[in-house]
């Protein structure tokens, strides 16, 4: 390597360090520093401020409300992610096969992007206008169709409240799964599809052996994104049920919010936060593996 090139490389490295220093310090100060602060909070008592070691964590393991919260969070994440993945995949495959007009495709893109940019709090408002007894249109439609005879209190029965909260997530985010996979399908080479059809492949076989292998990595990626985002669900729950009735929709974020900002036990909340971070990190680790093989 000649000296000139080496000199340029050193200069470039220096410049890179100057440019990166400020934004990285900024990111560290807003994410890593608070995380360290959380760890320190979690090992202290919230009244006396004395060091208590693992006491807050032991309390967390014996907290029935936390167990209940983990339970509903798991149900929420599984049902939401699974429904979004299946519905999004199904819609992408069916629509890709049956719609070829660019106009209609463009319309689908435009319509499907709207729920994604809707603030979740607003999505909660929309759901309220549909589920609420009295004005809500769902009860009216079901009554008119003869399916129910009396108004259902959608938001104040535990199981239906869970359904309502889930429905908002699925309505808002299935388009995300759909858009990614729909776009991914356009990358499937036309001649492979035609060769399969000439060989007499059925629609299901075409999906199983041609389309699905093409979509596998993308599907994995969107599922990971949805996993991470459903795990932190907060906004539309606050607007729709506030965690109730009882603790039927008190997901981890909502529970943590209540412990920290209603009971003001910041130290116990910090211990729960550490628990959430650990679970989130495990998810992150797997995502990192998928993405490095996909993007880099």
């Amino acid at each position: 390597m000649s000296l000139a090139i080496k000199g340029r490389q050193v200069a470039e490295r220096k410049l890179a360090i100057y440019l990166l220093a400020l934004p990285i310090a900024f990111l560290l100060s807003v994410t890593v520093y608070p995380l360290l602060h959380t760890i320190s909070l979690s090992v202290h008592d919230f009244r006396t401020g004395a060091f208590v070691g693992t006491q807050n964590f032991l309390r967390a393991f014996n907290d029935p409300a936390l167990v209940a919260s983990v339970r509903v969070t798991v149900i929420y994440v599984c049902v939401a992610v699974l429904s979004e993945a299946v519905l999004g995949l199904l819609a992408a495959v069916v629509i890709n096969r049956s719609v070829s007009s660019p106009l209609l495709r463009g319309l689908i893109y435009s319509v499907m992007i709207v729920p994604m940019v809707t603030p979740s709090v607003a999505a909660g408002v929309i759901a309220r206008l549909i589920y609420i007894p009295g004005y809500g249109i769902l009860n009216y439609v079901l009554r008119a169709a003869g399916i129910i005879s009396r108004d259902v209190l959608w938001l104040s029965t535990p199981s239906s409240a869970m359904f309502c909260v889930l429905s908002v997530d699925i309505w808002q985010w299935t388009p995300f799964v759909f858009l990614v996979l729909f776009a991914g399908l356009t990358a499937v080479p036309r001649d492979i599809v035609e060769a399969a059809l000439v060989d007499g492949a059925s629609g299901v076989e075409l999906f199983r052996y041609v389309e699905l292998p093409f979509l596998k990595n993308l599907l994995l990626m969107v599922v990971m994104f949805r996993f991470a985002d459903t795990f932190r669900v907060f906004d539309h729950v606050m607007a729709l049920t506030g965690g109730g009735p009882g603790s039927a929709t008190e997901f981890l974020s909502v529970y943590l919010y209540r412990i920290a900002f209603k009971f003001w036990n910041l130290n116990y909340a910090a211990a729960i936060a550490i628990f959430v971070v650990i679970v989130a990190s495990i998810l992150m680790y797997f995502l990192g593996k998928v993405l490095t093989s996909e993007v880099a």
Binding site: R232, A269, A273, A280
Partner: peptide
């Protein structure tokens, strides 16, 4: 390069609720 990029991506998966308590205090 990949180290920085992956670290930044991992922040996208940090649930804000877990840093909200110390951020509030700060």
């Amino acid at each position: 390069k990949t180290g920085i990029l992956q670290w930044i991506l991992s922040l996208r998966f940090l649930p804000p609720i877990v840093v909200v308590v110390p951020i509030f205090a700060i």
